[in-house]
Design a protein around this nucleic acid. Structure first.
Lengths: 214, 214
DNA sequence: GTCTATACTTGGATAGAC
DNA sequence: GTCTATCCAAGTATAGAC
């Protein structure tokens, strides 16, 4: 149940001034993403999204099973794009200095693009929408797994039973989400900037101590 | 504008089987708190709260200026109670071991009572409700100040320009909120438990190294 | 103070024309 | 595929009786 709606496209023609079906579908996903970022989960309704996408509500329900289904499509788009961009650099990091610089770069990009906001809105809003919760949890879990793998390179084996990589990853993801949550509350990026700044300083020092500075 | 509604109570009598006005007011605050915890911000409506409080919607609008005003009363109740309970012990902590044990105790209590959930729901939901945002931000700021003061005892002076107490406090608050955000997503406390467990282990070791173990 | 009843608004979702 | 028109549910808020 709740299978993703993917209507068959009989003709691929983009006829005249009307855009094709796929174009409308794409526009809806992008409109929903922007609405989540700019107006928040609560104000992301079929009406508001359709208006931004420049189509009618009915089109939304033609292309998707409902609003939650559309939100899931947004999550997948953001999730896949982030994973593609960050997976390799994260696994390639070897010194604390590299890792913290990378973390800062990722945070800056995710904040500027609104991707982090999309994740926060969905994580915070999903629990009230029956089907969404599990789906969102799965995407977050994938992200935690990646961070966990990256963390393994930085936790000496004898410490791994005390400072477990998976646990560190959970804390890191929670930290990112929490920082974005607070950032929206004060719409002042300074707080997040400062945390990353201090973290990078610490990472730099740790990298130097570890010796393998490059 | 948007001043808190506090109707004058001419007679203090609790007459017959009807509870007094203050009792209804209190019941509404408690009902709103429970609704936030159990159903989330989105489902906390005048209807749902009044039903749980055992009174009519109209009573809610008599005692409060509207739903946001009621939510603010909930925030104050939770905020003040937490501050009263945690202020002294937090400022009294002197070893990392003490601090992490305390942090764990606080987290456990806040999760069990639902207070942390109230904070998360309000921080996440406030931005969409015009008046609420600034008020919630103020309460969170108070909490950050306290944590900042506690953190000063643990950051050696030469390090305080690199690891700024206020920044650490911001990160800590973000971490708590983020962990609770994720906890709700998977309704499985294990993740949070593990983070606090590992943190306490690290704190214990750090406390021993610092020498001042007690 | 508290109630019932009601006016008004917004959102999800579908029918049926084109 | 996309639209307009429409139905229905749920929310905020107020009026007026008691």
């Amino acid at each position: 149940m709740t299978a993703r709606t993917t209507p068959a496209h009989g003709s691929t023609a983009t006829r005249g001034s009307n855009r094709s079906g796929v174009a409308t579908r794409t526009a809806l996903v992008e409109a929903a993403r922007r609405t989540l970022v700019e107006d928040g989960f609560a104000r992301t309704s079929a009406r508001s999204v359709a208006a931004r996408a420049g189509c009618s509500q009915a089109s939304l329900f033609y292309h998707f099973d409902g609003v939650p289904d559309l939100l899931l499509a947004v999550l997948d788009e953001v999730s896949d794009r982030r994973m593609a961009a960050y997976r390799e650099p994260l696994l390639a990091a070897r010194t604390p200095g590299q890792l913290t610089r990378l973390a800062r770069r990722i945070a800056a990009a995710d904040i500027a693009s609104g991707d982090l906001r999309v994740l926060v809105e969905l994580v915070a809003g999903a629990p009230t929408v029956p089907g969404l919760k599990a789906q969102v949890a799965e995407r977050i879990a994938r992200w935690e797994e990646l961070v966990s793998q990256a963390a393994e390179h930085f936790i000496p084996r004898p410490l791994r039973s005390t400072v477990r990589p998976a646990v560190v990853a959970h804390a890191v993801v929670a930290g990112f989400l929490g920082l974005e949550l607070l950032r929206d509350l004060r719409d002042d990026d300074a707080g997040t900037e400062d945390v990353l700044e201090d973290l990078e300083q610490v990472g730099r020092v740790a990298g130097a101590i570890a010796g393998g500075a490059r």
